[in-house]
Every structure is written in structure tokens, then in C-alpha cells.
Amino acid sequence: MKAFFAAEAQEAEALREALGASEALTAPLPLHRGEGVLVAETGVGKAAAALAVAHVLTRFPVEEAYFLGVAGALDPALRPLDLLLAEKAVQWDVDLTPFGRAKGETAFGVRFFPSDPGLLRRVQAAAERLGLPHRLGVVATGDRFLAQRGEAERLRAEFGAHAVEMEGAAALFAAWRFGVPMALVRAVTDGAGEGAAGDFGAFLQEASRRLGLLAQALLY
């Protein structure tokens, strides 16, 4: 069984429609099932994402998982609706530096949580078949919507990140703990600067549609 996760209602709706996941299941979050697939709407933020992934992986025999959603670009080369295939993600707001750890390094000794390389290759192949602009990169995850360009530039410099969002690293962490392969994919909606909130709303619908097409392509 394949599990697909998305934070926003619009993202999850696009995945449900594309994957034919119309059967609503009883769960502490919106969860729908289709033939061989699950679509979970996690809600926004790291805690919500980790809870959703843990619930699904505990309850169902998931063989592979994908977290799909939108992000703000830290790399100015990324354009709206470009796909960022996350090779790894870091929780930029984790700070255990008083204990000698690097910024973003967790108490588990892991700073960057990786996407599964095999799944990421499948995502890349699917994006190429669909003709969707994409690139590999690094995601920074934190429990705050970034709308200050100066801070965005600091995160890019500190973590080598290309995009910022609010769930990915926590989702990868939960999948890592369960030993289930997961790939993180983000579609760019904004530049993580002063106009980020407006751009997010303007591009969310089309970004969600493209992510639905990508998810559908991953079934074959």
C-alpha cells in the first residue's frame, strides 16, 4: 500500500481526486482510501505531520510513503510551481547547541533526515514524464510561516536549504523511526519574503493540481 500525505486541505483534496481515494476512514485526521492507496490530510506544522504519519504507519501496512505539498523558495533560481525533490530536510528551529549539537541536530544525533533515494528517483522519473520543472535540493522545516527575506537568506546560508516549509522534516523523521521509505516533494508557491502570504494563496490551487498529477503518475 502507498500512503500520500499533505498538510493543506486543498493539497489533500487534489491528491484524493487524482488517486481515486474516496472512502473516508475513521481517524483523528481526514483520511481516505482508494485502491492500494491512502491519502492523509495532516494539518499544518511539525507536530501535526508527525502524528499523522505515525498514525497511518501504525494502522496500515504501508510499503512506501510520499509527503507532497507546497513551500517557499529560499533559492532565487526556483520559480513558482517548480518542484523541489527533497534529498533531505532539517528542522531549522531545533536548537540543542547548549549541549554541543549543531543547529537543527536532534537528540537522536541526526540533523538532516533523508528522502528514500529509490522513491526520489521514481518521483524524478514521473516529473520528467509529465514535463514538470523540477530539481533536487534541501528543505528547511520549522513551525513558522516565513515571510521575511532576511531570515530566508539566513536559513539558506546556514543549512544549504533551497526551500522552507512547516512539515517535511518531521514527516521524514516519523517515517525514519518506523523504517518506512518516504520521499518529500514540494511545489514552490512563494519566495519566503514579504509577499509570501499573497503568493501562497495565488499559486496554491495550481501547485496542488500538479502534485495530484505527480501522485497519479507514481501509481504506475
Rank of each mutant, 00 (worst) to 15 (best):
R59I: 03
A18S: 10
S22C: 05
A27H: 03
V90L: 14
V39F: 06
A49S: 15
F67P: 12
T58D: 10
L74P: 13
P61V: 07
L51P: 00
A54S: 15
G69C: 12
R79S: 08
A27M: 03
A18W: 02
D75I: 02
E11D: 04
A52W: 05
L85V: 13
K46T: 13
K46W: 11
L31A: 10
E17F: 00
L83H: 12
G43F: 03
P61N: 07
A73M: 00
A18K: 04
L68F: 12
A50S: 15
A86K: 08
L31K: 08
L57C: 11
L68K: 12
R16I: 12
V44M: 12
D75M: 02
E63H: 11
L81R: 13
G36N: 01
A27I: 06
V44A: 09
P28L: 08
A40T: 02
A86S: 13
A89L: 11
P61S: 10
L38G: 05
D75Q: 04
E63I: 05
L31N: 07
G45I: 15
L85Y: 06
L85N: 11
S22V: 10
E13V: 04
P30K: 00
L15V: 06
E13K: 12
Q10H: 01
Q91K: 14
L74D: 14
E35K: 14
R59P: 02
V62S: 08
A12D: 00
L31Y: 02
G69Q: 11
Y66R: 04
E87R: 15
R59F: 08
E13M: 06
R16D: 06
A73T: 00
G45A: 12
K88N: 12
D75S: 05
H55T: 09
E13L: 11
R33E: 06
L83Q: 10
A12Q: 00
V70C: 13
L51S: 02
L29I: 03
E23H: 01
L57P: 13
A18Q: 05
A86P: 03
A6Y: 01
G36W: 01
S22H: 13
P76E: 14
F67V: 12
Q91P: 14
A65R: 15
